[in-house]
């Protein structure tokens, strides 16, 4: 466990809790893409199938349970409890345009042609693009609430920190995970535009607005 990975995981936990906090306290899913949260649910379920078959550490298992349960709770809040506040008209990204390619790529590029490894690779590829509906929604609505911006910043930072972790592991352990690294770089690059807006606007106390 490198420091970068721990920081990444904590940033990830922060993002997940920030989102739950925002929806629960404002009793509203306004500005939140339900499709992105649905895909994150798929990401965690398909990635952590080994939750009961391979034990890495208490930390690892605890985080897996946390990620799966928090993402299910988030989807429940968006699509059931606060359904009336879900802004479906602005959440129009076609999920199949990312789910199908991720599945096809996972059938081609995986570490073993087994159900588990294909599921794991699918999860990694899907995670890289799962944020697209949310980013599209921010551009469509033209702005994001501050707490949503902080959520996206924490979420984008988590995989960016993992990249530092992978560099660290390659340097000290001499091996790396090509599928995770490739997808992780794509995932982080997709936040590029958002990071720019975040640092030039939100940090200066202004609302995140996507200039028309």
């Amino acid at each position: 466990m490198t420091l970068f990975r721990l920081a990444g995981d904590l940033s990830h936990v922060l993002a997940i809790l920030l989102l739950l906090y925002k929806i629960w306290t404002t009793k509203s899913a306004a500005g939140i893409s339900g499709k992105t949260q649905l895909m994150f649910c798929m990401v965690y379920v398909t990635r952590y199938l080994d939750l009961f078959t391979s034990f890495i550490s208490v930390y690892n298992s605890t985080m897996k349970v946390l990620f799966i349960s928090a993402s299910v709770a988030t989807v429940y809040l968006i699509y059931f409890k606060f359904k009336a506040t879900y802004d479906g008209n602005h959440d129009t990204f076609r999920m199949e345009f990312v789910i199908v390619p991720a599945l096809i790529l996972a059938l081609i590029w995986n570490y073993a042609f087994t159900f588990f490894e294909i599921s794991w690779a699918f999860s990694i590829f899907l995670e890289a693009v799962a944020i697209l509906p949310q980013l599209f929604m921010v551009t469509k609505t033209g702005e994001a609430e501050n707490i949503t911006s902080h959520y996206l910043f924490a979420l984008g930072s988590y995989r960016a920190l993992y990249i530092l972790n992978w560099i660290d592991r390659y340097y000290f352990e001499g091996h790396w995970d090509p599928i995770a690294v490739t997808a992780g770089i794509v995932q982080t690059v997709l936040y590029g535009d958002f990071f720019y807006l975040y640092f030039t606007r939100v940090i200066k106390g202004r609302k995140l607005q996507v200039l028309p």
Partner: peptide
């Protein structure tokens, strides 16, 4: 569920 590749990262 072939565990060909133990994934130790989240």
């Amino acid at each position: 569920l072939g565990l060909a590749h133990i994934h130790d990262e989240l």
